[in-house]
Nucleic acid binder design. Structure first.
Lengths: 356, 356
DNA sequence: CTGTTAGCGCCTTCAG
DNA sequence: CTGAAGGCGCTAACAG
């Protein structure tokens, strides 16, 4: 590792001069010739600033701590981390990931990240949930990812009018609405909802969105067409008996996995998906997208995008930078403005395939 | 952030004494009374060592760089990162994750990690592949995860008899063997192989394992029962026509996703899985495990375990520590000894469910 | 048993 | 336009 010292020796100038030049603070302060010489040397020796030393001096590490649960077990962790990572990388930051499946571990890992002097924290959840924020994070910039702040845990909900914590999560209600609307537009009149029997924000809101869409289309809500199911055989049987008894022509499924139950029933009954019955899922889960035949029309959960947005937001908080300075890339789901604080909801894209 | 300086002031001793005590190097060097006092103060003030400062001094950061491809798009990234993370955390290390989907990005991210002075690198692949190791990593301890070293890219394959790079990957051949054996034990005599049409290490070796198992059971290999398929409708049709023409009673599927095609055909044909036909997959993919009915018997790919092993190995290389000092946890797939170098293969567990 | 000294690599006044 | 000096927080010789 070449240091400024070595460069300064070779260039015959002092370390301070090298520092000025290499931090681009030399305009009008250092002779252009020497500046160029220094830059050339640095490049040629493959100089890399030592972040440790710099951080020690500036008390800014450009490290972002990514706390998240269930990293090991969900397929979504990668996308969220990757989105955060890409944005971070673009603005000169780096990410330390840490998984926190219980409170003891959480404390331990937060302490580890604090030792490294991270500039801020992501708090990511693998399923959309309200989250409390650990006490000892109150001094840091924090952004919730796939999660919103649990105000019931709050002492102050806002500071000087600005919401206490900002978080980004999918617009679940709209997911339900858009999916159902798509089925209505395809001509379905008896639309089933295959929900999830665990209590979740997503379950409640998607179901509400489903009902709203029916109402707007003046289709009467029929509770017989709605079931909440778990996994495997019991779920499959429930779907089977729903179909037997009530003959829906469209299915809005809580997620892509649950859409599989409909596929299986259709195969048994000899129904053709996309013609006899129509299906919309949620997730755009890669494995299912690559597998199911006919391909599943689904609403994509923008995990990558949420990670990306959260990183931009977090960096803007750390640097107190104008949010205009961030380039928001075009993604399948359009990213919200960074000016938002508090609960931010991201619209999810409907991916047209063959099941509608 | 309280510093050693502050503690030393309060305790009325010098910073060095505090340093000694808080690093547990005080036995027989510092008065037990003062040592206790210092510890008490540190605890009470919530002292946290500043890793940056420490690293600057020791040139050890206890940061591990995790380079990996396709983090965003595969469901396995989380498990590998999480395994590495858990082991790292146990030995006082922390992980910086970085995704590298092209060479330019890879160089950029490696440079970023080098600035932070990472102590070593993971090189993770989302599908088992031979990997070259970037030139500029040659000075670092490196462990490949879900990957083995591409010796064709090497100048020296070993140094003083020790293989150049060590990597851990699933024992693919054994996967094919064990899966097929399981079907044979269940009484299947016409066992189909539903493979993958992309050229991959896993495809080649699992197929070999399949053939070996047949041979050991004196079942004649029939190429009519073996197909290599891609995704979606074409794959489904290929499986369908295989069943139509050759009536297999057992299916070894390259992965769980491909097992779905068999499920779909069985549903159409009214065959009962686990009785009329038997299926073994590979992946133990969570979404499919939670969904398919009857549940799929499958061989689990030990991503978490590979991450865990790789972290232990990497740390042992960094610290030149005796491999005996590492506690290897009990996992579904038994972890290999850390004494191995070069290509290390991990045996994968067969998860008994209902499809056999 | 404890303190002094020096320095890791870098940045930032402040003098020249 | 440039250099010297000081210090971020911590560790490690070496002296006392």
């Amino acid at each position: 590792m070449t240091t400024m010292k070595e460069i300064s020796a070779l260039a015959g100038v002092s370390v301070s001069t090298v520092s000025l030049v290499l931090n681009n603070r030399d305009s009008g302060r250092v002779n252009t010739q020497t500046a160029e010489h220094i830059r050339a040397l640095a490049h040629q020796l493959g100089y890399k600033p030592n972040q440790m030393a710099r951080s020690l001096r500036t008390s800014r590490t450009h490290i972002l701590g990514f706390l998240s649960d269930e990293v090991a077990t969900t397929p979504y962790a990668g996308a969220m981390i990757s989105g955060a990572q890409d944005a971070a990388s673009q603005y000169g930051y780096v990410i330390m990931t840490v998984s926190t499946d219980n409170e003891a571990q959480e404390r331990h890992e937060i302490a580890a990240l604090e030792r490294y002097g991270v500039d801020g924290f992501f708090l990511a959840k693998m399923s959309n949930r309200h989250s409390r924020v650990p006490e000892n994070l109150s001094e840091y910039p924090v952004v919730l990812v796939n999660s919103t702040y649990d105000y019931s845990s709050a002492k102050k909900t806002s500071i000087a009018g600005v919401p206490r914590y900002t978080g980004i999560a999918p617009d679940e209600k709209r997911i339900g609405y858009d999916a159902t609307k798509r089925l209505i537009d395809a001509g379905c009149t008896r639309i089933a909802y295959i929900g999830c029997h665990e209590p979740m924000i997503a379950e409640t809101l998607r179901f509400e969105g489903y009902q709203d869409a029916l109402k707007d289309a003046r289709i009467e809500y029929d509770s017989n067409l709605c079931i909440q199911v778990g996994n495997n055989t019991p779920a499959l049987q429930a779907v089977h008996s729903l179909i037997d008894k009530h003959h829906p022509d469209g299915f809005f499924c809580f997620n892509d996995a649950r859409a599989w139950y409909v596929y299986d029933c259709a195969a048994r009954l000899g129904q053709e998906i996309g013609r006899d019955i129509h299906i919309v899922g949620v997730d755009n889960h890669r494995v299912l997208a690559e597998t199911l035949s006919p391909q599943l029309t689904t609403i994509e959960l923008p995990h990558y995008e949420m990670g990306y947005w959260a990183a931009c937001k977090l960096i803007s908080m750390i640097e107190e930078k104008d949010t205009q300075d961030f380039e928001i890339p075009d993604t399948t789901a359009p990213l919200p403005s960074l000016d938002n604080d508090g609960d931010v909801f991201i619209q999810c894209a409907l991916i047209e395939k063959e099941s509608v």
